[in-house]
Every structure is written in structure tokens, then in C-alpha cells.
Nucleic acid binder design. Structure first.
Lengths: 235, 235
DNA sequence: CGGAGCGTTGAGCAACGTCAAAAGACGTGG
DNA sequence: CCACGTCTTTTGACGTTGCTCAACGCTCCG
């Protein structure tokens, strides 16, 4: 049943034999409640986590003015970078109830030591993550609130689509305005205004933990998603 | 003479035997003029570059509104992530005359295949880069122009210090207002105003390609550099 | 001496933050 | 079932930040 889940999302892009190898290494599968902190800044790590269900956020900065620096969707490793780094420089929190699988660093290292292509494949997963960080820097540095929010929704549309979690009409997105504030680097009040603009422009609406997309092309246009490099990175 | 340069900056944190290994792999050393583009988005890469002298910037977005997503100082690999990714999702440009050393991917792969600790060490270098991306996302998302600029100057102070390129009074920083605009995600005009504020606050001054620091503690305070994780990441 | 690039300054405006108030959503315990 | 507290969302008013446009000075170089 883990093999099944491994076929989806980013880990699903790995060759079959590597997914099998991962399935062997996998420790236990755990369910975790909403808004639980999995790691604090500075924590030493001895295992990494693969997200099977739900969303998780990674944060920097003081709680009252924190910035989300990455969001993970099912099929993503949440903190594989903690393996070479052996500590985390940011916090990790579940954005709702999640299901995860643990991968002990010992076992991963042992497998990689004798199989360079496997090591490079895992390395690549962490670099796709880094590519998303760059994409976020670009969004945070150069996008206005409205375009930035649309851009983020388009990113989610794309990434959740790859994980098989999207329909034509939209997808589950259990985020509060406070979450979107952390993601887009704007105030909660302004999040409310921007969502209203997107709604009234007939592009999309966020209600009941779900993003309903009314005009996907328009949303992507508003988010200035073009040759910006998201598809290239993830495909 | 390459061994000597390898002792400084980020690559200098590698164990001696790994630096020796790198020195063996190194291709030719090249000098490149100011404002030369080394790679375009989408380019396939067969070698990676170690920066020996000068500064380089990495950019996303259209030229007229581009965002710098990373800056490299001597001792940094500029595009080691292109090895597992085998293409670049952003542009790389020299910010002044630079000197670089080339490392063919073939040779790096061959060395890593038989030496897992070496592979993990290079992996770790790319993850420190990713950590800096996260730091930039935090700055771009949650810092005002003044604090953000101070934060960036503090980062340069710290990183150039590790590379041995800083004195008590300041360091060479051959950046134009347009560069700082790309770095901080603000307009060129506003860069001018912010620099004036920093100058008149007695913190630092940028003249003649050099940042003169008049009050380092005050600059760090203005940039809200504290337990934000930069030291932890780089040490 | 003329241009090109860079830096500075001011004026007006749009975007966004902060403060405050109030209404809705939701679960908990009585 | 209702009453209650808490969290979330919405809206208005007002102040601040930063952008755009425009003009002008500076420096460097041909």
C-alpha cells in the first residue's frame, strides 16, 4: 500500500526500482493532527518524512510575523535536506491532518552509499525543492498581492494536479487567510480583499477549504504564469 | 594555486582530502568580464562553476522586472545544482569581472560514485544554497525596504567575512542601485532613498563600489539579524 | 564636447498595513 | 437544544510605504 502512494506526486517521478528501494527503507506510517509542529528551528534530525496525505508548511521568522518558505503536497519529501544538513533551520507544521512515512537517515545513507544513481535521484528531489524556493523568492520580490496570490493558486493547481488531487473545477485547499498571509507576505486583512477581487473577477473562490476555479486560463494569466519555469522544473 | 583558493569561503569548509579531490577534478580557470551572462534559462549544463573571485548573480523573471534569487561570493559553487538537474531554470550573470574554475559533471560524478561522503558533502553545499534561498524568501516576504536592505548588507558582511574579504571598516561591493533593486525587490528610485536613510542614520554608506560600515551593530539591528538562522546555516 | 549610464530629488498616486468593529462558523459543555 | 467562547472572515477608515513619472546633476568615456 505504500508502493501505491509512492507512485504519485514527486516521488512518483522516480524509476520503479528506486521506489521499491524506498518502500523497503520506509519506517512506520503515522497520522498527525492539524497544526502540529513537527520540527523546531535548530532541531537535530535522524529521519526524514515523506508526505502521503494533507499539506505541510515550512516557516521562518518569529511566530507573529512568520513567512512560509515552502509548502509540501502529497508525494513530497518534507525535510530530506535535513539528511546532509543534519539539522533544520526552519519550522515544519501540518496545515491540517496529515499522514506521513518516516525514513531513517541511517538506512537511506546505507542505500545511497552503494548506489550512486539512487543518491543522485534523492539529491535531485531536494534541488527541485530549491527550485521552488527560487520561484517563491521571485513571487515575493516582484509580484503584487493580487498577481502573487493568483500565482500561488496556479502553483498549487499544477502541483496538486501532478499528485492526482485536482479536478477540472478545483481542489481541496484547507488554508485560512492567516495561512495565505504567511504564504504571500501580506497582511490578513489584505488577503481578504485580494480574495474578494479574485472572486469578483470570476477567476476563483476559496470556500470551505476548497479552491473552486472558474476561469483557469484567466487565473494563470493573472498570476503571470508563462515561461516562468514552474513546468520545466517539475516535469 | 587552486588548492589555496579552495581553502577559502564555503568550499573551504570541506575536509582537506575532499578539497584535494576537487583540485584534481578542476578544469581550466577562466576570467570573465563584467555583466556577462553565463547561462540562460533552460540551458543544458555539462559542467559546474566554482567562483574564485568577484560576485555573480542568479536571476528569475523577465529582464525589465527580474528578481535576483541568489548572489554568489568567492568560494561558492554557482550552479552545482545543475548536475543532478542537468538544466538551469534561471540566468547567471557576473556582477563585475570574475574568475572561475570549471568542473566537468562527468568527472564529478565519477568521483562521487565511489565515495559517498564526498557526494554527500557536495550535496550539502547545494543545500546551504537552498537555505539561503529560504532566507531570501523570508526577507522578501516580511521585511520592509529599509530593514531588508540592512539585512542584505549584513548577509554580505557575514558571507564575505567567511571568505576573508572583509575588514572592520567594510568590504568591496560593486553593486549599482539597479542591482540592489533586483536583490531587494524594490524600485531603483526607492533604493536611492533607502541608501540615503542608512547613510543618514550613520549605519553604512555605499560609494565607489565599496560598502563602508560605520555602525555594524546598528546595521545588524536594523536588519533584524538575530537568531534568524544565517549563522547556523553557514557554520 | 557630447552622450550614456548612474544617482538624486520632488510630486502625485496606488498599494498595502494597521486599527477597530462586527458578523459568521464552529466546537464545547451544559 | 441552546449558550458560550474562540477562531475566522469581512468591511471601513486612515496612515504609511513604495511606485511611477519627470527632471536634473554627476561621472566616465569616447
Amino acid at each position: 500500500m505504500l508502493e501505491e502512494t509512492l507512485a504519485k506526486g514527486l516521488v512518483g517521478t522516480l524509476p520503479r526500482r528506486m521506489r521499491a528501494k524506498l518502500a523497503e527503507i520506509a519506517g512506520d506510517t503515522v497520522e498527525i493532527g492539524s497544526r502540529q509542529s513537527l520540527a523546531q528551528e535548530g532541531d537535530a534530525q535522524t529521519e526524514s518524512i515523506l508526505l502521503l496525505d494533507g499539506l505541510m508548511g515550512r516557516y521562518m521568522g518569529p511566530r507573529e510575523r512568520r513567512q512560509m518558505v515552502a509548502i509540501q503536497v502529497p508525494g513530497d519529501f518534507v525535510d530530506l535536506h535535513a539528511l546532509p544538513l543534519d539539522k533544520l533551520d526552519h519550522e515544519v507544521e501540518s496545515l491540517g491532518p496529515v499522514r506521513i512515512a518516516r525514513f531513517p537517515h541511517d538506512a537511506l545513507r546505507a542505500a545511497m552509499a552503494g548506489d550512486y544513481p539512487f543518491a543522485e535521484a534523492l539529491w535531485k528531489l531536494t534541488l527541485i525543492d530549491a527550485g521552488l524556493h527560487r520561484y517563491w523568492s521571485y513571487r515575493l520580490g516582484r509580484f503584487r498581492a493580487l498577481a502573487g496570490m493568483a500565482n500561488f493558486f496556479a502553483e498549487m493547481d499544477h502541483r496538486l494536479g501532478r499528485a492526482g488531487l485536482r479536478t477540472e473545477e478545483g481542489f481541496a485547499l484547507p488554508l485560512t487567510h492567516a495561512d495565505l498571509s504567511d504564504i504571500c507576505g501580506i497582511s490578513q486583512v489584505h488577503v481578504s480583499r485580494v480574495l474578494k477581487d479574485l472572486r469578483e473577477a470570476g477567476l476563483c473562490a476559496l470556500q470551505g477549504g476548497r479552491l473552486t476555479i472558474h476561469d483557469r486560463a484567466g487565473l494563470y494569466r493573472m498570476g503571470e504564469v508563462s515561461g516562468a519555469g514552474l513546468e520545466e522544473l517539475l516535469d
